[in-house]
Design a protein around this nucleic acid. Sequence first.
DNA 1: TTGTAAGCGTTATCAA
DNA 2: TTGATAACGCTTACAA
Lengths: 346, 346
Amino acid sequence: MPNIHDVAREAGVSIATVSRVMNGDSSVHPALRHVVEAAVRRTGYRPNAAARSLRMAKSNTVGVIVAEMLNPPFTSIVHGIAVAAAERGVSMFLSDAGGSFALQAAHLERLHERRVDGVIIHPIGPYHSQVATLREDGIPVVIMGQRAPSGGFTEIVVDEDAASVAAIRHLIAVGHRRILFLPRRWDVPSNPGFATHQSRLSIYRQVLAEFGIPVEERLIIPTSGGRVTYERVRQMLAEAERPAAVICGIHSDAPEVLLAARELGLRVPEDLSLVTYGDSRWAEAGNPPINVVANAYDEYGRRAADLLFSLIGGASGPVVQHHPARYVARGSVVSPRSAQGHAAAK
Amino acid sequence: MPNIHDVAREAGVSIATVSRVMNGDSSVHPALRHVVEAAVRRTGYRPNAAARSLRMAKSNTVGVIVAEMLNPPFTSIVHGIAVAAAERGVSMFLSDAGGSFALQAAHLERLHERRVDGVIIHPIGPYHSQVATLREDGIPVVIMGQRAPSGGFTEIVVDEDAASVAAIRHLIAVGHRRILFLPRRWDVPSNPGFATHQSRLSIYRQVLAEFGIPVEERLIIPTSGGRVTYERVRQMLAEAERPAAVICGIHSDAPEVLLAARELGLRVPEDLSLVTYGDSRWAEAGNPPINVVANAYDEYGRRAADLLFSLIGGASGPVVQHHPARYVARGSVVSPRSAQGHAAAK
DNA sequence: TTGTAAGCGTTATCAA
DNA sequence: TTGATAACGCTTACAA
């Protein structure tokens, strides 16, 4: 691949001049400039980004780490960041921690070595010391989703507690007592914590307690999403004493629950009420449309990127942005008695 | 940020020794190795990837460009590649062409400058000359989705013609004549072509012709997805002479159609039959479950990555992998006469 | 086994 | 306005 020397030779100038032309330095004589540009075209020269980064101590890259990119909210986040980065001529590294804390740590390390200009992370587990390491080396980091236990971090946190409470109260209000709860599992060896889901669960316990409803541990099934959820839920719903309501912590688990219910001949919502975290047009278009705790993640990606680039641009101090989630009641929650009503009508 | 010299000074050795330790060279005396490792920890040293890339003429990065990452098939593809890359300790650049040929070109150029070790692209438009440029510089490229007009490219092509034909025949067989077709628009100024959707459309024309059904141009609505689709479809379905069947070229347009239909009080499938390209658990879990032309994209990402890494590893020559799509009939296609039957029953 | 030194491809300083 | 040259931080002959 041609380098700056090849172009200089081809054009009969010094490498300094070539560099100036490539960077639009106005102090180059127009005639010479054309000669150089022609040489660039003839040789098919492209400046080597690694050399440039090394010299300029700036990589023009940002790194993004998400806990699990297949989940629609993360997809939206990544998209928002990708667009913002592209607008600035910055390349985006994307990595998927796949729910594993160890993997996340490895990805962070790699981004650090690559001297990215900034990092956006939607983290899992106790990530603080590692993130602090990045920042000590002057790499700005924006943390998404989690509220950091210690201060001093720039974060976009989603306040979903109120919305969570509203969702659970709704279920209870219409008469549900036994509510299957499906948070993401956080007990896998490699994954020492997934704060969001833990706090969702504690809200669940709290609201039930508030109404004097005993929490049945059997009805809490941590899962890793996908077919596994389908299998477990199917099992649970096949029992005689099956719960008549489900809350999905993982948005993409909602169709798994629907599938399991159909398999067993259970109708939603008559036989099974459903609420899921996250939102999507599919959930909205469902028959019935699905109730959600919506967190408008799509905007957050964009916001996180803007925040990061302002930090990269030298903006001062940590910022914390709060964004409330909303409980959106559509058509997937009804009284558990509807089932009997229906059955009786037959 | 500390560099190799800082560590060398701290450890009282030469930079060569530090380098050897960092790279696991066995010819370093164990005692010295420990001294160096301690110095590395104390200084918080991390090798500079740019410098390493420059020296080794290898970046340990790959670039991925998708036409539109929010679409579930692309998401799956990207995920597959991300996992494969991470396994090899390679970082992945991700860029979204956002349906724009110009943007895609810019992204390709950027990846070229970054000297990525390889590129995977699910392209739009006439991309060949630019891709050829990459390859001339020794950067392997895997092309997804499209069949390249000229040979010599490594590609993963989806053979969906047979499945497309099956889908349309099914609609016709149950009695549909007026079928709304929603391909992705390819006439935007910046986007000189989107071969897949063009060929889907030509199949549509061809099958209709085969049955002697005249093609109504009004029933072909190129769209860019999202709410726009919702609006246009809503308009179309509000007409007196509305079509009773729809085919979505963009998977994520399916919920838009469902939403539009519901808005107008049309039931699926009784009043409106629906088929969509692409597949997802949501489509499967729908009520009714949606008929799809499924292309198993999720596997392809993984395959594309494996293909790319084998090329990077020095595997020879262009390879072309063909993958057939399948038409999966579920519950969203019925005879258009069902509507009257239903109406009469009221 | 360890160290010295050259060079990867840039940008930027300093002279000319 | 242009050119020679010194870094940037690493790996790797080659010497010791």
